[in-house]
Amino acid sequence: MSTYIKPRRTVRRASFWLGLTMVLAGVGILGYLAWTVYGTTFLSKQHQQDAASKLEAAWGSGHTEVITEFGSAEAIIEIPRLGADYRIPIFAGTSDKVLGAGLGHFSGTAGPGEVGNFALAGHRITHGEPLRDLPKLREGDEIRVLTREKTYVYALTSNGDDLIVPFTSVWVTDPLPDNPERGGVEPEQVEGQRLITLTTCSELFHTDNRMIAFGKLVAEEPTP
């Protein structure tokens, strides 16, 4: 009785193709991750610049907003602490499409300069990452929201990384956010304020929690 032994050459060939397949799979995964983090951000930054330019052109023509492929752009936000060139368009709604081109304005919340809570959302990583540096912001930092006729100047009333909540904590977009945790971070509990809220993911690669920063209107001025 004899035992069949597979030729070494066949074993080596199988090992070679298996190894090559694993290497190619690894390269593909790395390529996908690189595109997700860097590729989408590169494209989104271009979309942000394009939308901001189109919106300013629309203002020059007497319109208050501009319709782009990503939705309706209604304002531009500037945050001096994040750089002189930080100018991000604000779109109506918070769909994935909108957040791929700028900041999203939560439906049903106050508009720029209005009484209530002007609540905004943006990516912290990928897709232009407009709020990646939210943790760098500090109480008192200026947030400028430009519309066709007026620029609304808000000042933060909390640091950018003072408050982290589960993504289900919808109270942060209420007209007057009231933290259910006694003693927690919240705006001054006075009716009739004109507030702004910035929301983004608290971790770079997880979406379970949100980082929140609150601010209040401190000035209005004509848009240049």
Rank of each mutant, 00 (worst) to 15 (best):
L18A: 12
L82H: 15
K54G: 02
R148V: 03
W59K: 04
P187K: 05
Q189W: 01
A57Y: 08
Y38M: 07
S169Y: 03
Q49N: 10
V165H: 00
I125L: 13
A110D: 04
V98H: 00
D162I: 00
I212H: 02
G62H: 05
P222C: 01
G111L: 02
F16D: 09
P135G: 10
V145I: 13
Y152K: 06
T64E: 14
T10P: 03
T3V: 14
E203A: 14
F106D: 07
G62K: 10
F16C: 05
E56V: 06
G26Q: 03
D208A: 11
L120T: 07
H123S: 08
Y4N: 11
L30C: 13
A121M: 12
E181S: 08
E142G: 02
K136C: 08
A101C: 10
V27P: 04
V66H: 11
W59R: 02
H105D: 00
R138Y: 04
R210K: 11
G140R: 07
L204V: 09
V11C: 02
S61K: 15
T40I: 01
G93I: 08
F91K: 02
G19N: 08
K97I: 13
R81W: 03
Q46E: 14
L30M: 14
D161K: 15
V115K: 10
D162C: 05
A52L: 02
G39F: 07
V23N: 04
T126H: 06
R81V: 14
A213W: 03
G140T: 06
G113M: 08
A219Y: 06
S15D: 08
R8V: 12
W171V: 00
L43R: 14
G128W: 02
K6E: 14
L131V: 06
W171L: 00
D96L: 13
F106M: 11
G215K: 05
D141N: 11
L99N: 06
I212S: 04
L55F: 02
E56D: 10
L24A: 13
